[in-house]
Simulated scan of single mutants.
Amino acid sequence: MTDPKNPFDAMMRAGQEWAKSMNPALESFMPKGFEGMWPTLSADMMEATMGKTFNPEGLDAKTRLLLTLTGLTIMGAQAETQIRLTVRHAREAGATKQEVAETIAQAAMFGGVPAMTKAMTLANEVMEEDSNKDSDV
Rank of each mutant, 00 (worst) to 15 (best):
N55C: 14
G71M: 09
T73S: 05
K5V: 14
A108W: 01
A14Q: 15
A19I: 02
A95R: 09
T73F: 10
E128G: 02
T49D: 04
M127N: 12
E35H: 13
L67A: 14
A105R: 08
Q82T: 05
R64W: 04
A77E: 10
A10W: 06
N23R: 13
F8M: 10
P7I: 03
S28W: 05
G15Q: 15
G71W: 06
M11L: 11
K118F: 07
G33C: 03
V100M: 09
G33I: 08
M46A: 04
L26N: 13
Q16G: 02
M50S: 02
G51S: 11
L26M: 15
A90E: 11
N6C: 10
S131M: 12
W38C: 01
F29E: 06
L26T: 11
V126N: 01
Q78C: 02
L69G: 03
V126L: 13
P31V: 01
T121P: 01
G58A: 13
S42K: 03
E128N: 13
A10S: 13
A14Y: 03
T81D: 12
M1T: 12
N132W: 04
A90T: 05
L69I: 02
P24T: 09
M45L: 06
A19R: 08
D44A: 08
K62Q: 10
W18M: 14
A61T: 05
H89Q: 14
A108C: 06
A123T: 08
T70G: 11
F34S: 14
E17L: 11
S21F: 06
Q106I: 09
R91Q: 13
A101D: 07
M75N: 09
A95C: 03
T70H: 07
I74G: 01
G58H: 04
A93L: 02
L69Q: 00
M127R: 13
R88A: 01
L69Y: 00
M45V: 00
T63A: 12
F8A: 14
D130E: 13
D9K: 05
T73H: 07
A61P: 01
G111A: 04
L41S: 05
